[in-house]
Amino acid sequence: MIDPSAVREAQSTPDRARTNEEWIGALGQPGPEREAALEDLRRLLVRGLGYALGEQPGLRQSDLEDFAQDSLLRILKGLPNFRGESRFTTWAQKIAVRVAYTELRRRRWRDVSLDELTESREGGAEFIPSELADPSLGPEQQAMQRIILETLLRLIREDLTDKQRQALQAVLRGMPLEEVARRMDTNRNALYKLLHDARRRLQKRMLDQGLSPQDMLAAFGN
C-alpha cells in the first residue's frame, strides 16, 4: 500500500501550470527549463499514480517513483507522437498508467508459464454434458447453456488454429493479454487481433450450427 504522507507531500507541491505548447517547448530542448519541467512532470505522475494504483497490494512508494521515472523516458521518446488533442498531462498520465500496469502484471504473472495454463485435450476426460446443469437456472436455460457450451467446446477444438486456442485458454485462465503476448513472442495489439479473429470465426460457426446471438444472450443473460 502507498504511504499516504508521501502522496500528501507530493500534493502539497503546487504544479506549475503550463499550456501544451509550454510543456512541449520546455521538454524539447536540453537545459534548465527541461530539468524543471521534468521535475514538475515527475511529481505530477507520482501523484497521479498514487491515486491510480492506490489499492494495488504490495505496492511501495518507491514503485511509484520507479514507474514515474520509466514513464518520463517513454514520454520524452514519444513527444513527437503527441498530437495535442488532449491536455499534455493527460497524455503523459496515460503513458504512466500503462507503464505501471505493464510492470505490475509482469510481476504478478512472472512465475507462470504458458504451458501451465494451456494444454492439449488429447487423452483427457470427455466433456460430460449432464454435468453442466446449474440448478439455479430454469430447465430451458440450462438446456440452452449446455448446447451452447458443448458446441463452443467442439468448435474451439476443431475450428481454431493452435495459436488461437492456446491464447484463448490462457486468457480464460485470467492471464492478461500482454503477458500471454510476451510468452507467445507477439504484442498485446496483435494478440487482441488474433483473438478477435477467433471470436469472429466462432461466431460464424455458431451461426452455422443454428445458434444465434439472441439464443446465446437468452441463455447467458446480460
Binding site: L152, L172, R199, Q203, M206, P213, M216, L217, F220
Partner: peptide, 10 residues
C-alpha cells in the same frame, strides 16, 4: 461468460 458474450457480439 465474457467469452460467450464476446463471441456473440464480435
Amino acid at each position: 461468460k465474457s467469452l460467450v458474450r464476446g463471441i456473440m457480439t464480435a
